[in-house]
Write a protein that binds this DNA or RNA. Sequence first.
DNA 1: GAATTGTGAGCGCTCACAATT
DNA 2: GAATTGTGAGCGCTCACAATT
Lengths: 354, 354
Amino acid sequence: MSKTPQKNTRKQRHAATIHDVAERAGVSPMTVSRVVNGGKNVRESTRAAVMAAVGDLHYAPNTAARSLAGAEGARVGLLYSNPSVSFMSEVLIGALDESSRQGALLVLEKCAIGDAAGELAAARKLTAGGVTGVILPSPLCEHPAIVAEFTQAGVPIVAIAAGFANGEMSCVRIDDFKAARDMTRYLLSLGHRRIGFIKGQQGTTSSNERQRGFEAALREAGIGEAPMAQGCFNYRSGLEAAEKLLAQRPAPTAIFASNDDMAAATVSVAHRMGLDVPGDLSVVGFDDTAIAATIWPELTTIRQPITDMARVAIDLVLASIRAREAGGEAGPVDHLVLHSLIERQSAAPPAMIA
Amino acid sequence: MSKTPQKNTRKQRHAATIHDVAERAGVSPMTVSRVVNGGKNVRESTRAAVMAAVGDLHYAPNTAARSLAGAEGARVGLLYSNPSVSFMSEVLIGALDESSRQGALLVLEKCAIGDAAGELAAARKLTAGGVTGVILPSPLCEHPAIVAEFTQAGVPIVAIAAGFANGEMSCVRIDDFKAARDMTRYLLSLGHRRIGFIKGQQGTTSSNERQRGFEAALREAGIGEAPMAQGCFNYRSGLEAAEKLLAQRPAPTAIFASNDDMAAATVSVAHRMGLDVPGDLSVVGFDDTAIAATIWPELTTIRQPITDMARVAIDLVLASIRAREAGGEAGPVDHLVLHSLIERQSAAPPAMIA
DNA sequence: GAATTGTGAGCGCTCACAATT
DNA sequence: GAATTGTGAGCGCTCACAATT
């Protein structure tokens, strides 16, 4: 490796620069810049050579230099209305961190829950503000009017925790079906046979998937019918749903709520009825939000790596933005990440049948 | 205003640069750089002239250029063990956002709650990692060993939500005393006279301040004694404390818990005893964390603007770092921010005495 | 000699445009 | 002429060092 002797006026830098890559690939720095930014008019062989050099040298563009040189920093919008503060916190942390690492500007826009007009107005504010890409956490990504607002403006969308992938937008999610099936299998393995289920918001894909996963696990175990109650992902709906389920006879020995807020409400109802959790009733949730580890007993639940998912979403939207600016256009990506089952204190084998 | 004709090869920039400031102040750009970064060897008259020009032009350094040019980016450590996920989420959001805006690197280090050895190890990891400043959220800022680790390494500290200001470190906080007094006055204004109090973690300043505020308001109202129970800021301790308070006769008509987790636990105990909240018992919390708006009824509580506080903390620590690097040294700052009382559904006038 | 100020180059990238295929 | 590649300058700052008081 011959290095041109470096003047001692500056401290040594260690990371590879665009010049190193250019030299190795036998092209000019500008060509490297084009390839790295997804430029269109580059011969395929040139692109391959540059990408190889990039890989060899572990080249990563210096974001400070990039923005100084006048590259339009990407403006990524994050529209949020998700009722769960801790879900959103995790999204914000991942998105904020990754976009600062990537030198992109994250524009936050909050809107009230379930206020269709307000949501659309917030979306318009983002497009009017000139965002070049947008992240849509569940459940916003399922609202056709919002999606239309962005697609019509030519703004690429990445959905977080959508529960589904359609052809319209990229999405980063866990497999809700499998996660719910895993949790149900876990309850079955503990010995439960009468398991109640609290459904989530009607009409959202992730709710449906969770329910499908629950039912699939029951079917595997040869159990046909199960007590179910409709909820809508908030604590109060969990209170009512739990009361209904616990009024049934024979009473369930376990309740699987579609999210943690409703599971926490179920624990509260059980306590009110003098039931010990998990002695008399096992309760499990979904999401692993803050409340899961706050209440007592702490909730056994499914965890989504939300912070990481938000990071991935930023990377996807940035790639999309760059590709669009350079004239390219990649199809939507369905990025699945792994969930995990967090065992805490709210589930145990059922009590001996009296 | 005569402007040198600008070549059309680049898009027009609008923000003032260091050159504009230099020209206006009649010095070289390097001198401006020195002043802006808190350099030592600058004549007072020069500094004043530069600062005036900075003010006139609303100059703010371009962080991209700064880091490209090789300025050592500040490395700010954030050590956290705070049991409240949502408290920490807010801290993280503010700190992450502000440090990216300021071009500083935020290094996160998590440690287990109450594990003194682990906490110290995490602090050592930060100093060994070369952080040049550190943010310490409550309650870490009250641990002498941790504080010593940083002060001995010459690393400036900014405490968040410390509940007190001593001469050792800067701190950003609300006035816990006044906030607790406000909340107690609110309960009194509703007509409550038998108000129970759940204390926070023993030995922490913010707990003590909250208790003092509570007692001060009671004294104002001519109420001498009040039922109190010790808690330690978690849900479980709230359960036990609430049981004790509600067993007393005459029973309190309101309970003020030193944080939201314990207030939520109190609501749960009340429900278990068949008490309606707020019909039979008012319950209020402190902090306005996620759980406050999750459970039903939603908690009336005190809100600290934690995200903003974290931003301020970053700014303070950055100023401290720059000053130290440039040979200057400012004394610690006590930055008070305003709290607010959030009225929700968990408090109401007491029922008519039977 | 110490304190204060300035000079010239360079950080790593992308811009507008020119030159080549 | 269209597609592809390269050239030279410049973004706004701070570095090391030199020059001045």
